[in-house]
Design a binder for these strands. Sequence first.
RNA 1: GCGCCCAUGGCUCAGCUGGAUAGAGCGCCAGACUACGAAUCUGGAUGUCGCAAGUUCGAAUCUUGCUGGGCGCACCA
Length: 554
Amino acid sequence: MKQRLIQFIQGAVNACVEKNLFEPVELPRIEVEVPANPEHGDYASNAAMMLASLARQNPRKIAQMILENLSDPEGIITSTQIAGPGFINFFISDTLWRQVPKNVLDAGDQYGCLSTGAGKKVQVEFVSANPTGPLHIGHARGAVVGDVLANLLQRSGYAVSREYYINDAGNQMNNLGISVLHRYRECLGEKTAFPETGYRGDYIRQISADIVKKEGPRYLTADEGQTVSYFNAIAGAAILEEIKQDLKDFGVTFDHYFSEKQLYESDGVTGLLADLQKKGFIYSDGETLWFKTTDFGDEKDRVVIRKNGEPTYFAADIAYHKNKFSRGFDLLIDIWGADHHGYMPRLWAAIEALGHKRDDLKIILVQLVNLLRAGEPVAMSTRSGEFVTLREVLDEVGRDAARYNFLMRRSDSHLDFDLEVAKKQSNENPVYYVQYAHARICSIIRMAAERGIAMPEYRDVDTDPLSLPEEKALMKMMARYPEMLDGAAQSLEVHRITFYLNDLAALLHSYYNKNKVMTDNAGLTSARLVLVEAVRVILANALGILGVAAPEKM
RNA sequence: GCGCCCAUGGCUCAGCUGGAUAGAGCGCCAGACUACGAAUCUGGAUGUCGCAAGUUCGAAUCUUGCUGGGCGCACCA
């Protein structure tokens, strides 16, 4: 709808230019939006005001000219007005709104699927926690945001691939191996001084005990270096399996798991560095290799090969992103914890050095989660082993409530997650508000069937009886659904879906409380059944994108 | 010290990429089930959009400077 109006306006402006009513100007981006105040029409545009300064004419006069040259062949506009400084307000024919429920049902679960993505290949990389311990609540937010964003982009016509980068190389993994070795020795009765930087969670003991059971005490005397790397491989694999299972139960799955270790083994790192050195992006100070990230706006150059000869995480990350591009993705999206924001200029520098545009990589920062229980903060620390795991949250509050709670705010704003509130099945918990709207509609349809009123074939139903303001409000809201999805996809802001759902559910609940769907009038009843069924389809559709269930009963 | 992010009713947050009278939820007050599900609805009170300038037809939104909070500033990941 919005698009059609934009086209109308563009046509009118072109017509004006042809008639030399005003200077041929570069057409600014025309905005059409839904005014807050319904008296200002169903849609309003600021086109005249945008043109005013360029064409050096009075905006109201321009608005007048636009309207005079506006062609509306199908007659969807019932009236227009010029208001305020030069807004053009459009009133759309009610018969058009009354087609909306049918349009929704025509498209079914495809309603709102767009083609903006035009098949472009997008990769979303998220979670990517190193396998040194189970996922905790902090990872959960990034997991949901990434998953939902991937769903959304898929809906918008992108070819989406979800990837988990396994940081299975480097110090942290070494640390893991050492931690396992200590617990292994303890398990066999030796006294050890557990290292400061070790991982203290109980899961380490479990892994060590398993090794003892399977392989006995032979590693007490084996070469320590080899044992540590063997242990961290075993532990890493075991923990990764657990992570995958937790994510699966959380409704998050990946198309690819990409191993950092394999990046090294396939020589993806050193070869690339040599290449970049030839191009002059990398220099040596005799002991270490530096990447000239300052050439691309970073505040200082960054080390890629350490004094001890080992590549840094950054070096591997350059290779990783090069690898991503080489797989043919048109757009990369990385989802990071907000505490990594300082890393962005470095990676962008690398992207540009690799010959890509900075915009080819979008980085979404997800703020850390403040975990609370009944208002009291819960301490979190991976190393000490004191943390609330994703598994525990799933068991305690459930998947739907957990996911929905993470989607209620912009991802770059702080989020308080209160376990007590999230598990309450009450009005403090917005997920039920939306699910209830869905269940309620299902209940109406069930009840109708019991009374012998089958869900009518919507194509045969006359929706003209839908004349109440609340009905129009519902239909207008439904017409906005594709526009909302498009905005969310373009801005990569998944929380918009949650807010939309809340608004739609509110209209439905309000309508329900005021009006009966089933009336004495068969025609009206049919029309209303079609209306609420269309609402149900959108609720289910949007909840599907969020990965939250749309229950028929609660 | 430098950099990034945030600041909107008592609380938690939206605000559609600069639009018309700034909105929800929670909490508070008063109401609605002989009705398709009260996990719902209806009505009411609450604002110097942190402060101060600037940009223009128009600013919560963009610029700059302050104030206050979070996070970064590794040859960790």
